[in-house]
Design a protein around this nucleic acid. Sequence first.
DNA 1: AGCATCGATGTCAGGCACTGACATCATCAG
DNA 2: CTGATGATGTCAGTGCCTGACATCGATGCT
Lengths: 185, 185
Amino acid sequence: MGRWEPDANGRMVRAAMELFAERGFEQTTAGDIAARAGVTERTFFRHFADKREVLFDSSRTLERTAVEAILAAPADDTPLDAALAGMLAAGGLLEDRHEHSVRRFAIISANPGLQERELLKLAALAEATAGALRGRGVAEPAATLAAQSAVTVFQVGFARWVSAEQPPGIGVCIADAAAALRALR
Amino acid sequence: MGRWEPDANGRMVRAAMELFAERGFEQTTAGDIAARAGVTERTFFRHFADKREVLFDSSRTLERTAVEAILAAPADDTPLDAALAGMLAAGGLLEDRHEHSVRRFAIISANPGLQERELLKLAALAEATAGALRGRGVAEPAATLAAQSAVTVFQVGFARWVSAEQPPGIGVCIADAAAALRALR
DNA sequence: AGCATCGATGTCAGGCACTGACATCATCAG
DNA sequence: CTGATGATGTCAGTGCCTGACATCGATGCT
């Protein structure tokens, strides 16, 4: 494994979360994070493409979970239903990490650069979702539209989930947002 | 006005478009753009917050146009209809700049960092749209959902408009995308 | 045990993005 | 003609990120 202690990756992620919460994203240098994690700045950039990426280490997992759920959804589900099933599955990964999600949300909300990166990850999620829908035989532009709509529902539901005092399940938040979307005319 | 020739801003925008098309975004330094525009690198950063921003100089205009159209939409329009009216108005600004839009789209598509910035601008457009809908009395989360849906329609319509060999009007592309969205179940 | 191998890490040098501070120049009001 | 104002130029400096190379730790083979 590594030269010293194991799980350098996790240590850097945790160090970054701490430092960003303490002093803010811009007031934290990549070297600061590396130092707290007990590695070198160079090592930090071997694990993460850039400074922001350290906050998005689990986005691929989220994506994969969504895609699998979409492909496993009942064959007679509409494209939107299937996509929403993917969002519910993705949300499930966060269900027991509410506090962590709240902290992370606060950090990202405080910095435009991080919001930018979050949007890119959500766009990737939407594209993966659209790809899964196409795998189910959905044609364009329906695949893209359903995928993007589902991700929007995820965003709205997630925002309520992290903002609520007495948080309901994230599944409820997503389902409510989905209902509100369908109510649009 | 300026110390030398007028319209330094426009010169920098044009120089950037040329250089990005010639060598790509990453292979172009801020100093390169400034030099071709006949100014200093420092002046470039006085006009644009960062190197990417030079490609998004007109996004505020787009936003303002959309908001005005939404506020001017018939009172009995549904939230989604009003938001889509805003998108059509915004698209109208691009109607007679098809070639420029194609070139710009190609540049942005070739670079993840620029896509990130584009997503941020679209998110800002969505937020402005949601604000305009709230101004019409639309409550949350309907305002956000309708706004985001409209922006998605804009994206899909725009993508077809810049990709089509024989381009129809951008209004047609947006209207078609809107119809496809409503056809989702 | 001894040795070769391989991946992860450390070290170093350097380019580019971006910023603060200060000087300079063009324009315009008076 | 002069002072004020705003845009530009100049300069120094920090931080992000990368390439190249050396080094270490674990693993497998003999």
